[in-house]
Design a protein around this nucleic acid. Structure first.
Lengths: 112, 112
DNA sequence: CCGGATCCGTATAGATACTG
DNA sequence: CAGTATCTATACGGATCCGG
C-alpha cells in the first residue's frame, strides 16, 4: 500500500473522484464539448465539471482543444493514456451496473 | 449515463471514495483486524476507517465478525461480491502504479 | 487495551449567480 | 458557450470518551 501524498494517491484520487469516474466514462464515447458533458453527466455542476476536467488534463488523461471563435468552442477528448485508464473505469462501472441486482439483494438480506 | 442518487451512483461513490478504494484493495490480501487495516492504509483516521468499513459492509462488500472477548477482536474480510469488485479496483490501482512513469512524463511534457 | 462513537474546527466539495 | 466568483454544505482529521 503506497503512502499518503505520493503521486499514485493523487492520481487515484483524481481518477476515482465522484465526477472523475463519470467524466472518463463519458469521454470513452468520444470527443465532447463542455455543455455536452454537462448534459451527459447528470447532476454535475459547471464548477465541478470544469475543475475535474482541469485535473484530468493536468494528469495527462484528457486533451483540451479550444477554438478561438465566438461563441467559445472547446472540445474534450481522452489521450491514449486516458483511454487506457478509461477501460479500467468502464470495467468497474459496468460491473456495478450488471451486478446491481445482486448487490441490492445482499443489502436486503442484511436488513432482515 | 445513470442519474443522480440512483443506487448505482451510491455504490460507485462508496467504492471509489478516497478510502473505499484502499480498504477494498487492502482486504484483497485477506482478513484483517481493524488496527491492521489502520496500519496498512497509510494516512487513514480511525473515524474514516470505521465509517468506510460500515458503508462497504452495508453495501454487502465487506463481512464483519466480532468476537466477544476482551480486549475486543474484530475481523474484516471481503464477501464474494466484495472480492469481485476488489478485482476491478486492484486492476485500476495496479494500472496506475505500473503506468506512473508514463503519467509523470506526460505531466512534465505538458509543463514545458 | 481494542474498536469504535461523538463533538468540534477546518479544508474541500459542491450549488448558484455572474462574466467575457 | 465556457468558464470564474462567491457562498454554503459536507467530508475529513483530531481529540476525547466509552463499553466490553
Amino acid at each position: 500500500m503506497f503512502s499518503t501524498l505520493c503521486p499514485s494517491r493523487e492520481i487515484l484520487n483524481h481518477v476515482t473522484s465522484r465526477w472523475g469516474v463519470l467524466v472518463l466514462s463519458a469521454l470513452m464515447d468520444g470527443t465532447h464539448r463542455f455543455s455536452e458533458l454537462r448534459r451527459k453527466i447528470d447532476g454535475v455542476s459547471e464548477k465541478m465539471l470544469a475543475q475535474t476536467l482541469q485535473q484530468l488534463e493536468m494528469d495527462g488523461f484528457v486533451d483540451r482543444v479550444s477554438y478561438p471563435v465566438v461563441p467559445p468552442h472547446v472540445e474534450y477528448s481522452l489521450t491514449p493514456l486516458g483511454e487506457q485508464i478509461g477501460v479500467q473505469i468502464d470495467s468497474l462501472v459496468d460491473w456495478i451496473e450488471s451486478n446491481l441486482p445482486k448487490i441490492m439483494k445482499a443489502q436486503q438480506a442484511r436488513q432482515g
